[in-house]
Write a protein that binds this DNA or RNA. Structure first.
Lengths: 76, 76
DNA sequence: GCCCATTTGTACGTATGTATG
DNA sequence: GCATACATACGTACAAATGGG
């Protein structure tokens, strides 16, 4: 999954992985993606790193973040 | 009480304090410890920090957490 | 059953300090 | 100096369970 040795920043790698999971349909529109805590565990990353990755997806318009509820895949 | 300047994380300091209050008998078996909100006020900590400390005591088996009711000292 | 207060659970946002390359 | 990464901490918000009236 995540290549700790590779040249790419971990947050970029995670963002790419999540993009793939969205585009493959595994993560569906209007459904939540795993929480920051879950992604942290799942990929063995720090909270800040996960937040950075999600921030990128948000800026790309791929997800919509709702404080206190979760991060959702944008429909379209 | 809590040493804001010290090297130890605040949640570890609070966990240690609560451990002491349990072992001294101030907090008794099958009786609730102060609520998260009370501990927050009492020690001037954020909610997340208090939850982190309680989480540690739970993992140690010192307390039993009941959602909607409170956190209780385990008997024995 | 319904509302309400209390309490714990979960979740995101932000900031800071430290360490590494 | 800067980017990356981790750990800690505070703040805020929404959810769920419990119990009393």
């Amino acid at each position: 999954m995540i290549d700790l040795e590779g040249p790419d920043p971990l947050y970029q790698q995670l963002a790419a992985i999540l993009r793939g999971r969205i585009e493959s349909g595994e993560l569906q529109p209007n459904r939540p993606i795993p929480s920051v805590a879950q992604l942290q565990q799942e990929y063995g990353l720090a909270r800040g790193t996960v937040l950075h990755a999600v921030e990128m997806l948000k800026e790309e318009g791929l997800v919509r973040v709702v404080k206190g509820r979760g991060t959702f895949v944008v429909s379209q």
